[in-house]
Design a protein around this nucleic acid. Structure first.
Length: 288
DNA sequence: GCAGGTCAAGTCTAC
DNA sequence: GTAGACTTGACCTGC
């Protein structure tokens, strides 16, 4: 088994970030382009850092283009951003770092409210637009959660599947992840059976919201894609993430991966902790 | 230049 | 009923 790793959004030490944003009251062509260009520039610097330090995965911040999915965002701005992304494509893909995205908690495909669903679709379309403009390969996925339970889990699952089928073009990049409250790994695997979506396994969420599942079933959901895993540790409060990864969580994760140990599989494991590249460097040492 | 309040959006849990 | 956790701290105002 080969484990690759990386980090998300920004660096801790030198303040690089792909997640700058603006306030809605300041939404304008000038501010949007300016903020996007700063995020884009830092993306290139972060990818350079990744190349120099052995990181092969990076998650771009969801504010990469602020308010892109908002109804007040002008089409002309979109065309301009598309042109910039296309002209910078090679400067970004040349690092061969797997780029992924993870929209915010506002993306709820299984909401009973049609407005929430349509805005979620717009948000996923925005994330796809970024990755498509960069012509990122099939490993560049957009990771979402299933959504709420709304007191009826089965119905909520069915609504997720139905709403997804109405927007079938989005499925190409979507991967679904278990969460810490409502949908366990086993739940997400069941949904994957109906949708064909790959399943991102989050170890920390799995500890809080556990279920029985077969690791091979999970790996099988990744057709033509490198399986992706998230790992993190408990912070001071319940549900909160820690600054660094706890060694015991790495050991626990390793134990779960035991069935893959003597295979030639490649997997990506991203530590979701606050100290970003500093924590990822430690993680890199551990996996070596 | 810095501290502290604020920020587009949903859902759930703890208090 | 509300604050705070998750995506994610960065922006902005006032001193």
């Amino acid at each position: 088994m080969i484990i690759r790793t990386g980090f998300f959004c920004s660096t801790w030490d030198n303040g690089l970030t792909t997640n700058r944003k603006i306030k809605f009251q300041n939404l304008s062509h000038k501010r949007v382009i300016e903020t996007f260009l700063r995020n884009l520039n830092d993306l290139k610097l972060i990818l350079e850092f990744c190349k120099n330090n052995g990181f092969e995965v990076f998650r771009i911040g969801s504010n990469f283009v602020p308010f892109f999915s908002h109804k007040d965002f002008k089409d002309e701005w979109r065309y301009e951003i598309e042109d910039i992304l296309k002209s910078e494509r090679k400067n970004i893909t040349k690092y061969n770092v797997r780029l992924t995205m993870h929209p915010g908690q506002f993306v709820v495909l299984n909401s009973p409210d049609p407005k929430v669903v349509s805005e979620s679709v717009r948000e996923i379309e925005y994330h796809s637009f970024i990755l498509d403009s960069l012509e990122a390969d099939q490993n560049s996925i957009i990771i979402i959660h299933i959504g709420g339970k709304y007191q009826d889990k089965q119905q909520s699952i069915e609504r997720f599947i139905k709403n997804l089928e109405k927007n079938v073009s989005l499925k190409r990049r979507i991967a679904i992840e278990n969460d810490d409250k409502s949908f366990s790994v086993n739940d997400v695997l069941q949904i994957s059976k109906f949708t064909g979506l790959p399943v991102v396994f989050d170890y920390y969420h799995h500890l809080i919201n556990p279920s029985e599942f077969d690791l091979h079933d999970l790996i099988k959901t990744w057709v033509n894609k490198i399986p992706k895993f998230h790992i993190s540790s408990a912070g001071k409060r319940k549900y909160e993430h820690s600054d660094y990864l706890d060694r015991k969580d790495f050991d626990g994760f390793k134990k779960l991966m035991f069935p893959l140990l003597n295979t030639d599989i490649v997997i990506d494991v991203m530590p979701e902790v606050k100290m970003k590249e500093k924590a990822a460097l430690i993680f890199l040492e551990w996996i070596k």
